[in-house]
Design a protein around this nucleic acid. Structure first.
Lengths: 194, 194
DNA sequence: TGGTGCCTTGACCGAGTGGTCGAGATTTCC
DNA sequence: GGAAATCTCGACCACTCGGTCAAGGCACCA
């Protein structure tokens, strides 16, 4: 199924992906037809099926790409910071910033959770994300900075707060990122310290 | 649009709603056709459109019903408990228990968030839920039991933790409700105290 | 017995979908 | 130049869906 692509081909491919991502996020996955996508780009339908085997596959690739990007951003933000609590704080802030800049991805992930065809990809993504957080939390517990609870549960709680505040205040109300991040960090760090 | 219904009619109506809710939650809203619903019940398609003007309307009514039910449950659990922090704890526990018993509703709400046609109903529901929580939090701040932060943000954080832990541990992994509720309560109360 | 609403049926409709394909344009490389 | 590979086109296909409707059944009352 893998195709050999020229440089021009790769450009088209990403063009299709970004265009589709925007449409999916704006109108929803089901309400966006393949025709919508190719019409928006002003190309024929054959173009789409030259680069992607199906609409579902395209969506899955979009999801994977988004996750890869978010994770890179988190790791870059954390760098080699030694203090586990600070690492978590930096992670939360980087995530907020990323959600702010990639609102459409947020919507896409939300949707993917409601459709069995995509839950697998999402589960993989989540596993990685939670794994990252768990590592920092374990370090924090060892260092005595975090309550001695099941690390994974704490990680889920932190992610829950971050996602929820991102949705309500960044996506729905467009409030300043830093303030939202401050609130998330404050709540989470207290929740973790116990 | 309101119909006069006999007792038998009302029964059919709820029969349709519960059947549809189960199918929507199992296979997704889009993947469940009106034909699926009526076939499952072994009736003709006309029956559906006798009781509901459209598939969307049915879904909206299901959402409203679910929310009404959850709120009743929360209020019953809280009763006339005077301590704001305890009220919040009771609310979280009641919510967990309800999600545990109404898994399908959880999935439905998740989906509704991703479709513009339903975001209005959901927004109304959310407003009420957050409003309830905010009241308790304000009381807690006045009593000096809760950090002096914007009450609404704290409420959103609490809801975020509760929803996330419910999804991961109740829906996906089927862990014991009490333990999940304990974890949510512990994290949230610490987060609130500041 | 006949009439009046409530309820049920399922064939049918138009719209729209994801996906195919043969034909042709364009680029690449010898 | 010309062959091969990459890419583009859009009519077309098979199918599904939400929703309609003329027709008929059924319960109850006069």
């Amino acid at each position: 199924m893998e195709r050999r692509l020229t440089q021009r081909g790769r450009a088209r491919r990403t063009e299709l992906m970004t265009c589709a991502a925007r449409l999916f996020s704006d109108q929803g996955f089901h309400s966006t037809s393949v025709s919508d996508i190719v019409n928006t780009l002003g190309v024929g339908k054959g173009v789409f099926y030259w680069y992607f085997p199906s609409k579902d596959d395209l969506f899955i690739e979009i999801l994977r790409g988004a996750n890869r990007d978010l994770r890179r951003r988190q790791q870059a933000a954390i760098g080699d910071e030694p203090d586990p609590l600070v690492r978590i704080e930096l992670g939360i802030r980087a995530t907020m910033q990323w959600f702010h800049e990639h609102r459409s991805s947020f919507t896409l992930i939300q949707f993917a959770r409601t459709d069995d065809r995509f839950t697998d990809v999402l589960a993989q993504n989540q596993e990685v994300a939670i794994g990252d957080a768990v590592r920092h939390i374990k370090d924090g517990i060892v260092a005595g900075e975090i309550a001695d609870q099941v690390p994974e549960v704490l990680a889920e709680a932190v992610v829950g707060v971050t996602e929820r505040l991102a949705r309500t205040y960044l996506l729905e109300r467009d409030e300043p990122v830093t303030e939202v991040a401050d609130a998330a960090v404050a709540f989470c760090l207290n929740g973790l310290k116990g």
